[in-house]
Design a protein around this nucleic acid. Structure first.
Length: 638
RNA sequence: GCCCCUUUAGCUCAUUAGGUAGAGCAACUGAUUUGUAAUCAGUAGGUGGCCUGUUCGAAUCGGGCAAGGGGCACCA
């Protein structure tokens, strides 16, 4: 005698077990037609689920957000159906819903080609037209394993074996095709609609483990309507346009070449941008009490053995053997070097906290497949610092670091920042009491920052807990940049000490901290965030002076000179081209300010100014414009 | 590192049964002296990523290597 309660509070009582479909029908015929699934006490179920107990229910239709998950999940199944019909002998493994779509991993000897994708898509359309009904069955575990083994689906059998004993094994049938699946699913396949597209084939390890065999993964996207699909595809194209690798080329910022994979050749314009960033951060750090130092790139392996890098990090280190047969490593991190600077001279508790910063270029032999433009390189500059302090100072210093990082992010328009906090792992060094203190300190810093955070339990470094700073860019992508790590290990290993109030030698705690992590990567993020249209203060070329014809060249040169004297970065275009042509070209080059001068301007000592992306013009005295641009050229303050 | 794909002029891309390559833009030369997103004409430009094999003949087919791309794994 179940009584079901609808979202509006209305109750319907039944004299016997009912299905979701029955309920939908009792509410209205039109709802029954639209119904895709049912939510029973916060759990999503098939529409065919039998309800025997009192429950709160909600009929899921295309209007619910959850519908998209159903559509995508069913799309994955249909894709697997299509693949197995077209390519017999292919094994199915897992096929989950992901952001914007779905994928399915297949085991098949032959690789899938792009032509295969269109064939599969076509077959999917056919299946959707046939609209097979969905049916759920619960099987006994052994029967399920034996069955999948008998039809050659060993991966599925392995998956069933891994399902916890208290869970039931549900098998979904779509027509005569079936798959192990938790569900729920649409009542019939035709409900998917046709707003989907197969995107790409990729390799993926079975169970995400690189020791396992590699499967073939097909990615697809699926939406509620053709319109949504088109919008998604359009957004992808737009995102491609702001790809920093593409913009780096067209804006003449940097290049890569095969003789030095993963290392940047910075061109004048890109390097100007890079240096502008460094200048900005240098100033902010000096204001925050950091002392900038510089340490060697190449250091004897003995020091890396002491620091533990030789043991833990060797596979990422470049090494070199000199003619006198000494082995050196090119630094992958700055910390050991900073400890050496700290170790010079006796330190007192009065010297703490001691903050050493460095724009240190580090080299790491990253796996070739990881390289990606500026975002992942083998040679990069860290905006690195190490804070030597007492255990009692961890909290205060952590709060300061967090504030500094968040303030700097804001200067670049990154308001949407989140934190990831990782606490003690199983394998670690240091006393639990010190860990307690370090973790408490980081949590307090997080609390003080008033920013959302997620906990990565047990994911801390072996030497201490850490916070990672994640920023979201203009098109909603997250980038992990800054980091703050408490280190209870390295100062001890490298013999760093200070004299405390009682005159006893003690080992300081070290905080590792980076604002953006890699400046190369941050430059890439900035380019994409701004789609190349950098704010005036960061723009490598800030002003293009465009005279109308030869008569105005002299005046134009005069202004060039004035701008340069005022530390603005101008260029001048004296080519014998029409003004339209010059405007177009420098606009495409994303120069933020165009200065046009013709006879009128020469006569009145004015300039006509046009800003990137805007069509309106502004004519004013050159002197006035000069002072306002000088103002605008300053780095943000906070 | 692993799977798949790609690599042709400075850039973006063509050449769909193997017969030594073509366009647009850029560059250069000349004409044009121009007022807010492409003035016209001409010239030059390529041992087709590198090595190797098959063939009378390879950008095109096979093998190897490298770099780049999409993913996976790793990660700033």
């Amino acid at each position: 005698m179940p009584i079901v309660q609808l979202p509006d509070g209305k109750k319907i009582s039944y004299s016997k077990t009912v299905t979701g479909y029955d309920i939908a029908k009792d509410i209205s015929i039109s709802l029954a037609k639209k119904a895709l699934a049912i939510q029973v006490n916060d759990e999503y179920k098939d529409l065919s689920v039998e309800i025997s107990k009192d429950s709160k229910v909600k009929i899921i239709t295309l209007d619910d957000d959850y519908a998209l998950e159903l559509l995508r999940h069913d799309s994955a199944h249909v894709m697997a159906m299509a693949v197995q019909q077209l390519y017999p002998g292919t094994q199915v493994t897992i096929g989950p819903v992901i952001e914007n779509g779905f994928y399915y991993d297949f085991a098949r000897e032959e690789p899938f080609t792009d032509e295969d994708l269109s064939k599969i898509e076509k077959k999917m359309m056919e299946i959707i037209d046939q609209d097979p009904q969905t049916r759920r069955e619960v099987w006994e575990r052994k029967k399920a394993i034996d069955h999948f083994k008998s039809i050659g689906e060993s991966y599925k059998a392995e998956l069933i074996d891994a399902i916890p004993g208290n869970e039931e094994i549900s098998i979904y049938f779509h027509g005569d095709w079936h798959d192990l699946c938790r569900g729920p699913h649409l009542p019939s396949i035709g409900r998917i609609g046709k707003a989907f597209k197969l995107m790409k084939v990729a390799g993926a390890y079975w169970r995400g483990d690189s020791n396992n065999v590699m499967l073939q993964r097909i990615y697809g996207t699926c939406w509620k309507s053709k319109k949504d699909l088109d919008l998604y595809l359009h957004n992808l194209e737009e995102a491609e346009k702001r790809d920093h690798r593409k913009l780096g080329k067209t804006m003449d910022l940097f290049h890569f070449q095969e003789e030095s994979p993963g290392a940047v050749f910075w061109h004048q314009k890109g390097w100007t941008l890079f240096q502008t960033l460094v200048d900005f951060m240098r100033k902010k750090q000096l204001e925050a009490g950091y002392m900038e130092v510089n340490t060697p790139e190449i250091i004897d392996r003995g020091l890396w053995e002491k620091s533990g890098h030789w043991e833990k990090f060797q596979e990422y280190m470049y090494t070199t053997v000199t003619p006198d047969e000494r082995t050196f490593a090119i630094k992958p991190m700055n910390c050991p070097g900073h400890c050496q600077v700290y170790n010079q001279g006796l330190k007192s508790y009065k010297d703490l906290p001691l903050k050493l910063s460095e724009f240190g270029k580090v080299h790491r032999y990253e796996p070739s497949g990881a390289l990606h433009g500026l975002m992942r390189v083998r040679s990069f500059t860290q905006d690195d610092a190490h804070i030597f302090c007492t255990e009692e100072q961890i909290t205060e210093e952590s709060v300061k670091v967090t504030k500094l990082i968040l303030d700097i992010y804001k200067s670049f328009g990154f308001e949407n920042v989140s934190l990831k906090y990782a606490d003690r792992p199983e394998k670690r060094v240091g006393d639990d009491a010190v860990w307690d203190q370090a973790e408490k300190a980081l949590l307090e810093a997080i609390k003080a920052s008033n920013v959302d955070y997620t906990l990565n339990k047990g994911e801390g470094a072996f030497y201490g807990p850490k916070i990672e700073f994640v920023l979201r860019d203009a098109i909603g992508r997250d980038w992990q940049c800054g980091t703050l790590q408490v280190d209870l290990n390295l100062p001890g290993r490298l013999g760093s000490t200070y004299i405390d109030k009682e005159g006893k030698k003690k080992t300081p705690v070290m905080l590792h901290r980076a604002l953006f992590g890699s400046l190369e990567r941050f430059t890439g993020i900035l380019i994409e965030h701004y789609a190349g249209k950098l704010p005036f203060w960061l723009s490598p070329v800030q002003v293009a002076i465009l005279p109308i014809n030869e008569e105005h060249h002299e005046y134009a040169k005069e202004m060039l000179n004035q701008l340069e004297k005022n530390s603005i970065r101008p260029i001048i275009d004296l080519r014998n081209e029409k003004i339209n042509y010059k405007i177009r070209e420098h606009s495409l080059a994303k120069v933020p300010v165009l200065m046009i001068c013709g006879s009128k301007e020469v006569q009145d000592k004015t300039i006509t100014l046009r800003r990137l992306g805007k069509e309106d013009q502004q004519t004013a005295k050159f002197s006035e414009i000069l002072s306002s641009l000088s103002q605008e050229s300053q780095a943000p303050k906070f």
